[in-house]
Computed example of a mutant assay.
Amino acid sequence: MAADWTDAQNDAIVADYFAMLTADIGGRPYSKAEHNRLLQPAINRQRGSIEYKHQNISAVLKGLGEAWIPGYKPAFNYQGSLEDAVMRWLHRHPDWLASAIRTAMAPSAAALQEGATLWIGPPPTHSNAPAPEELEQMTAIARKYNVAERDARNRALGRAGEERVLAHERASLLAAGRTDLAERIRWVSHLDGDGAGFDIHSFDANGSDRLIEVKTTNGWERTPFHITRNELAVAEQRREDWRLVRLWNFAREPRAFELQPPLGAHVSLMATSFQASFL
């Protein structure tokens, strides 16, 4: 039976993985086989062991709601010390994510002007859930490192996601021949601030309102997200009009799904903070 990986071995392979991931996101060529070959003598591990550990790192990053290397399918049977190694690397390189995916995250000006529509698919359900042990492990990682709060605090990511949905809404209305409505779309959060309970005021082709709250992540479709008390209240008050558009896989190829009120029919709503007042 192979010995457990040491912290030094984990740190070395995590650094190697991020070197490949940076190249992958940036569209630069790299050789997985060459990376593996050079690692073998450096950490005294065999090719197959290194290959599987790279898949383990993909699983950790998936749980963290981050991009991972598509060629390394997430494998979920790993030591807890690997999570620590990934977090150590991220803490040592706090600007890595922003610098590595800035270009990929923000759609080009040309794409926004052309108004390319988004891929809109079905929301996650019990019927399309992954295996229970995988879902449990991904949920545990997301909760442990509070990825919902991280995404909520990432203003650049949030703004880019709203901008992408804005372009999609305009393109959809133009394709439906409703130029009049496309010209009336308002980016409410940008123009008026965050107090409205939605980010974009758009329209259906028949002229009815679409009050859109955008939630964006670089992670997979089941990455948890934050929603405010005010957003929930507006969703209840304007059930016919309010929509939550969830953007995921944003750093690579943005995809989306929509949720309609009541949100409790789609997601588990958990209170994460409390207001304290003096007696």
Rank of each mutant, 00 (worst) to 15 (best):
I141W: 09
I141P: 08
A142P: 13
R143V: 00
R143N: 04
K144L: 08
K144H: 11
Y145A: 01
Y145V: 00
Y145I: 02
N146I: 00
N146K: 13
V147W: 06
A148G: 11
A148M: 03
A148F: 01
A148V: 05
E149F: 05
E149D: 10
E149C: 01
E149G: 08
R150D: 09
D151R: 12
A152W: 14
A152C: 05
R155Y: 03
R155P: 00
R155C: 00
A156Y: 06
A156V: 09
L157Y: 02
L157E: 10
L157G: 01
L157H: 08
L157M: 12
R159N: 13
R159S: 09
A160R: 09
A160G: 03
A160C: 01
A160L: 03
G161T: 07
E162R: 05
R164D: 03
R164V: 04
R164K: 13
R164E: 04
L166F: 15
A167E: 08
H168G: 06
E169I: 00
E169L: 06
E169M: 07
R170G: 09
S172R: 15
S172E: 15
L173M: 07
L174H: 11
L174R: 15
A175C: 00
A175W: 03
A176H: 12
A176R: 09
A176N: 11
G177P: 11
R178I: 10
R178V: 09
D180T: 11
D180H: 04
D180E: 14
D180V: 08
A182H: 13
A182Y: 13
A182N: 12
E183I: 00
R184S: 13
R184Y: 02
R184I: 01
I185K: 05
R186T: 07
R186W: 00
